[in-house]
């Protein structure tokens, strides 16, 4: 068994993150930003809020406003960064709009010590998980599409060229090997050119 060691309170990946903070710089916020600096993340403070928030951040920390969604560098559903929304003190919040902006974490100002780091860490983790799931789904979609193309192409060859299933399969496989492309690509091309095969 390993010897014990002091626990890591801050996740390692923080030091590699580019964080853009678009929040009014009052004194409490300046303190919160100083706290974030201790995480060794690369910080950029922008204010006033730009019409379009930068697209190269890993985390966007934004002050809540009704039309925040329009300032984001993505359309809702496929974020390119973790979104942390800070609710301004003493102003009503449109919770429906807040929900539909799809933040990964929310905190209310004035921020107590540690709250911004906590929101950033959990928000970024939720965002990365969402991203990995998206990638897995994209991969599955591609696979299903490839399987479908191969089955359709096989059916076409069997019907139009009177091949057996095994012959149709071998035909596509040989072509793929000759052209050095995946069988799915050969199949998709065959399906696309089906009208010409008649």
């Amino acid at each position: 068994m390993a010897a014990t060691r002091p626990p890591d309170l801050l996740p390692r990946e923080l030091a590699r993150l580019r964080v853009v903070v678009a929040v009014p710089p009052d004194e409490a916020m300046r303190e919160a930003i100083r706290e974030l600096q201790r995480t060794r993340a690369e910080l950029h403070h922008v204010w006033p809020m730009p019409a379009r928030l930068p697209a190269d951040a890993d985390v966007l920390v934004c002050s809540y406003e009704e039309r925040l969604a329009e300032r984001l560098p993505w359309t809702i559903g496929r974020p390119s960064a973790a979104l942390v929304v800070l609710l301004p003190p003493g102003r009503p919040v449109d919770y429906r709009r807040l929900r539909d902006t799809a933040p990964h974490a929310v905190a209310a100002r004035p921020l107590p010590p540690g709250a911004l780091t906590a929101a950033l860490v959990t928000g970024h983790s939720a965002f990365r998980y969402e991203q990995r799931l998206h990638q897995r789904i994209d991969g599955l979609d591609e696979t299903v599409k490839a399987l479908r193309s191969i089955e359709r192409a096989k059916a076409l060859l069997m019907e139009r060229r009177q091949m057996s299933e095994e012959e149709a399969w071998r035909h596509m496989r040989d072509m793929a090997m000759r052209l050095r492309v995946p069988v799915a690509k050969v199949a998709a091309t065959l399906v696309d050119s089906a009208p010409l095969l008649k």
Binding site: T143, A146, L147, I150, E151, K154, E165, E166, A168, W169, R170, M172, R173, A176, P182, V183, A184
Partner: peptide
Amino acid sequence: PYLVSHGRNPTA
């Protein structure tokens, strides 16, 4: 893993 490039595809 999904036997995409194998004609004998069990999901077909």
